[in-house]
Design a protein around this nucleic acid. Structure first.
Lengths: 376, 376
DNA sequence: TTGAAAGCGCTAACAC
DNA sequence: GTGTTAGCGCTTTCAA
C-alpha cells in the first residue's frame, strides 16, 4: 500500500502510483516492472504475473505523458476544424475518429470557430502536446503560418474540406466549383436571373475576384460565377453575400430579397435552415416566391416543407480518406503530395420553381446606381 | 542552427529544438532560458529578448508533455460522450469548450458510440494522459468502473445528461422524467391511448421496471409510464421500444405501427427524423394518421412538414453548467456533491392530432395473446 | 531474464 | 538576476 497524503478536506487521496511503487511491491527492479507493465522486452511469466498483481494492488495507471517523452511516440493525432455544430464537420469527425482509432491512434479535437487566431492557438497546442500528425480544415487560405508550422516541425498534415494557398500539402476536398456550377444551372434552367449566394464565411463586401478566405466557399463562388457567365447572365445582377464576422444570416436574406433575388444558393445546411426560417417569418412562399438550393444533405432537407434541392457531399468519405492518408504518412509513406478531390451529387427536390418576376424590366436597370452586388 | 538529420527521402528535418538549444544560442543557462520562455521567475529584460530571439531562430516549440510532467498540471480536461453526430452532444460540447477554454483549459474529446467498452477505454486514455478533470455522459448507469476510476484517482469529474447508480458525483442533467410526463400528457389529451416510446438506447425487449442503461432514457420512460398510470391507461397497451444494439429506428417504427400505435414519442431529434422519414415512406400522414412528439428542438423541427411538437432541453446551459462546475472543482472548490437538474420546455407545433381509431374496440383486446409491449 | 543507470524536456529549489 | 542540480515517470541501452 502506498502512503496516503491527508487532504485539506480530510479525505485521503492516494499519490499516484508509479512503476517504482509497483516494482517495490513486486520486489523486482523498476526496469523489470516496466517491462511487464508495458508488455515489451522479455520477462519471466511468474514475475510478470507478480508485477501485474502488484500493479492493481496499488492502483497503477500508466502515465502516457512519460511514455511519450521517452519513446517519442504519442499515438495521438489532432483534428482542428471550425465548427463542430455544423453537421458537415460532425460527420467528418466521426469518420476520422473511426479510421484513426482502428489504426491505433487516439484523437484530440479542437474547435476554432472560423477564427484564424483560435486556429493558430489550437494547432500550436496540438504541436506542443506532440501529436503524431494533424488533420485540419484551415480557416484561412492566406499565409497560414500555423498550418505551415506543422510541416516545418516535420509532422504529417492532411488538409480537408479546404486548402491553403502556396502550400504543398496532402488534402482531401470536394469538387465545390463543379457543385456550385451545377446548382446555379438548376436555378438558371428554372428561369432565374437574379440569384444570391449566401455564406457565413469570407469577407463582407465581396467584389468579383476577391480572395475568399475559405477555399471551399471561394470555389463555390467561382463555380457560381462561371455558370452565370456561361449563360450570359450579367454577374453584376447577382448577389454574393458573405457574412464575415457577423452572426446571422437573416440580414443577408433581407438584403438579398430587397435587391430582387428570386433564388438563393445556401453554402451549407445551417444557412439553408436559416433561409427557410427567414422565408417563413417573412411570409415568403418557397419555392413560389423564392427558390432555394443548398450544399450538404442532412436528413431534414428531405423532411422540410418544401424538401430542398441539394448538392450532397460525400462527407464520410472525405473524412475517412483524409484519415487514411494521414495514417499512411504516419506509417512512413513518402512520395508526392496527394490532392484528392471528391465529387458531389445533385439531389433535386421541390424547392425550386420558376421566378414570378419577369426579368426584362430588371435587366434595363442594370446600370441603375445604388444596386449593389455585395453586402456591406 | 541545429544540426539537421538527413531523412531517408533526402529531405532535411530538424531535430526538435529544446530549451537547452535555445540557452546555448543565447549564451545563458538552461534555467534562465526556461524562465524567459515560460514567463515565470524573473529575468533581465535584455536577456529575455535575447532568449526569445534565439528561440525563434531555432524554431523552438515548448513541449507541453515535459511541462506537465514537471509541474503536474496539464491544463487540459477530457470530455467523453456517446455520439458527436447527435446535435444534442454537438451543442453541449460547444458550450463546454467555450467555458473551459475561457478558464484557461484545453479540451480533449472522445466519442464512445454508446459502447461501455469504448467508454472505459476513452476514460482510461484520458486519465493516462493526465487530464486535470473529466466531463462524461456515461453510457451505462450500472457499476461503471471506468467512471469510478476517475474519482478514485482523485480527479474531479462532472457527469452530464446521464448519471451512474450508487455513485456520488457532481452532475448536470435535464428533468427528463417531467419532460416525458408532459409529452405523454399532450398525447393523452389529444385522445391517444396507444403510444410508442422510441429510443436507440437501452436494452431490447424492455419490460416495465427494467433498468435502462441510459438514465436519461430511463427517466423518460418513467415519466411516460407515470403519465399513463395517472390517466388510468393500461400500460400493457403501450409500446416501449428500445433498440439495444441494432442500428435502425425503422424496424421499431414498423413494429409500433403494426401493433396499433397512434402516436410516437421520439427520445431524441435523430429518432424523430427517422420516424418522419419512415412515415413518409409508408404513406402515413403525420399527424392525421400518426402523431409525433420528440425531445430536443433543433431548427429543423419547426421547418419540417409538419413542424413537430417538442420538449426543448436547455442544451447549452447543461454543457456550460457542467463545465463551470468542473472548473470550480479544479480551482479547489470542496464541499457537497452537486446535482443540478434543469427543466425542459414544451413547444407545441403541428405534429399532434386526435387518433383516427376509436379505442373502445382495442381496449377489449387487451388480453389478446401475442400483443407485445416490447420489441425483441 | 534481470538490474543499474542514463536520458526524454521541462520546472523548481537552492545557492550565489 | 542567474546558474546548478535534482527530479517528474517512463523506456532503453548495456552489463551481469
Amino acid at each position: 500500500m502506498l502512503e496516503e497524503d491527508a487532504e485539506p478536506d480530510g479525505s485521503a487521496r492516494q499519490r499516484e502510483a508509479t512503476v517504482a511503487d509497483v516494482a517495490r511491491l513486486a520486489k523486482v527492479s523498476k526496469a523489470t516492472a516496466a517491462r511487464a507493465l508495458g508488455g515489451y522486452g522479455s520477462v519471466n511469466e511468474d514475475t510478470r504475473l507478480r508485477v501485474l498483481d502488484a500493479a492493481d494492488a496499488v492502483g497503477y495507471l500508466p502515465n502516457a505523458l512519460a511514455r511519450t517523452m521517452s519513446t517519442g511516440r504519442s499515438h495521438t493525432i489532432g483534428v482542428v476544424l471550425s465548427d463542430i455544430e455544423n453537421p458537415f464537420f460532425a460527420k467528418a469527425t466521426r469518420a476520422i475518429s473511426d479510421v484513426v482509432q482502428s489504426a491505433g491512434f487516439d484523437v484530440v479535437l479542437c474547435n476554432t470557430d472560423e477564427n484564424p487566431h483560435n486556429e493558430a492557438a489550437a494547432i500550436d497546442l496540438l504541436l506542443e502536446k506532440r501529436v503524431a500528425g494533424l488533420i485540419v480544415a484551415p480557416a484561412d487560405r492566406n499565409a497560414n503560418g500555423a498550418v505551415a508550422r506543422v510541416t516545418a516541425q516535420g509532422r504529417p498534415l492532411v488538409l480537408f474540406d479546404r486548402t491553403v494557398d502556396d502550400f504543398e500539402c496532402d488534402s482531401v476536398i470536394a469538387d465545390n466549383r463543379r457543385g456550385a456550377y451545377e446548382l446555379a444551372r438548376v436555378l438558371l434552367r428554372a428561369g432565374h436571373r437574379r440569384i444570391a449566394f449566401l455564406s457565413t464565411l469570407g469577407q463582407q463586401n465581396y467584389r468579383r475576384g476577391d480572395r475568399i478566405r475559405s477555399t471551399s466557399v471561394a470555389d463555390r463562388v467561382d463555380g457560381f460565377e462561371a455558370a452565370l457567365d456561361e449563360a450570359g447572365v450579367e454577374i453584376a445582377n447577382q448577389i454574393v453575400l458573405l457574412d464575415g464576422e457577423r452572426p446571422g444570416i437573416d440580414p443577408l436574406l433581407t438584403h438579398a430579397v430587397h435587391h430582387g433575388a428570386t433564388a438563393i444558393i445556401a453554402s451549407d445546411s445551417l444557412i439553408a435552415q436559416h433561409v427557410l426560417h427567414g422565408a417563413k417569418n417573412r411570409g415568403l412562399a418557397v419555392p413560389e416566391e423564392l427558390s432555394l438550393v443548398a450544399f450538404d444533405d442532412p436528413p431534414w432537407t428531405s423532411l422540410s416543407n418544401p424538401p430542398v434541392t441539394v448538392m450532397a457531399q460525400p462527407i464520410h468519405d472525405i473524412g475517412a480518406e483524409a484519415a487514411r492518408l494521414l495514417v499512411r504518412r504516419l506509417d512512413g509513406l513518402k512520395g508526392d503530395v496527394q490532392r484528392i478531390v471528391m465529387s458531389q451529387r445533385l439531389i433535386e427536390r421541390d424547392s425550386v420553381a420558376p421566378p414570378r418576376v419577369k426579368f426584362h424590366d430588371l435587366d434595363h436597370q442594370e446600370n441603375k446606381p445604388g444596386l449593389p452586388h455585395s453586402c456591406e
